[in-house]
């Protein structure tokens, strides 16, 4: 994304805004699908995310990659959307949770494609899904996730473990079927 294209978008030129939309719509909509519980919800997040990108484009200082900045905007939009939907993140304790150490489990070489993985993610509870996305796909640490979501670090870890257990079961089930 060149500075001239950004300037054109800031001036409100529809052609430049449409070009930016066409360039990033696929990747950003995939991000929205991962955080949303349904496709319709992902569409709402994607619509709001693009509006915020065009509104806050002047805040992009050009120091990092533009797609990274745009991705953060969409993630924040998704989180705020979840907050609006009052889907409170579950804060179950790790106490009593029997989590097997399956780090040595076989890799999922015959797993379904990305669309099916997204469908599996959407079957997760919102809290599990959000922590899994932030930790695994966005690369945040547990302390950062705790800051972002307003939960403790231990809660973030437990949410991640629970999400992985759920995903593994769902994945095995889908492979069997």
């Amino acid at each position: 994304m060149s500075s001239a294209e950004i300037e054109a978008c800031l001036r409100g030129e529809r052609s430049a805004q449409r070009a930016l939309y066409e360039r990033y719509k696929g990747r950003m909509f995939a991000v929205c699908l991962r955080y949303a519980g349904s496709r319709a919800e992902a569409e709402d997040i994607c619509q709001e995310g693009f509006v915020r990108v065009f509104r806050d484009l002047g805040q992009y200082d050009g120091r990092g990659p533009f797609e990274g900045w745009m991705r953060k905007v969409f993630v924040n939009t998704a989180l705020q959307h979840l907050e609006k939907q009052r889907r409170r993140i579950q804060t179950d304790s790790l106490d009593g949770l029997d989590v097997a150490d399956d780090a040595e489990a076989s890799p999922f070489e015959d797993a379904p494609p990305a669309e099916q993985l997204i469908q599996l993610l959407q079957q997760l509870p919102p809290g599990f899904r959000t922590v899994f996305n932030l930790y695994v796909l966005e690369g945040y640490t547990h302390s950062e996730i705790a800051d972002i979501l307003g939960i403790s670090v231990g809660t973030s870890k437990s949410q991640l473990l629970r999400a992985k257990v759920h995903l593994r079961r769902l994945l095995e089930k889908s492979l069997v079927e």
Binding site: K25, F29, A30, A111, L117, I118, L137, K164
Partner: peptide
């Protein structure tokens, strides 16, 4: 391995939004 698989599969994934989204 589960995290690696999800990360590798979904990192560059693109999905087509509806036509009327723009």
């Amino acid at each position: 391995p589960l995290e690696d698989y999800f990360r590798r599969t979904l990192d560059d994934h693109e999905a087509a939004p509806p036509a009327d989204l723009w």
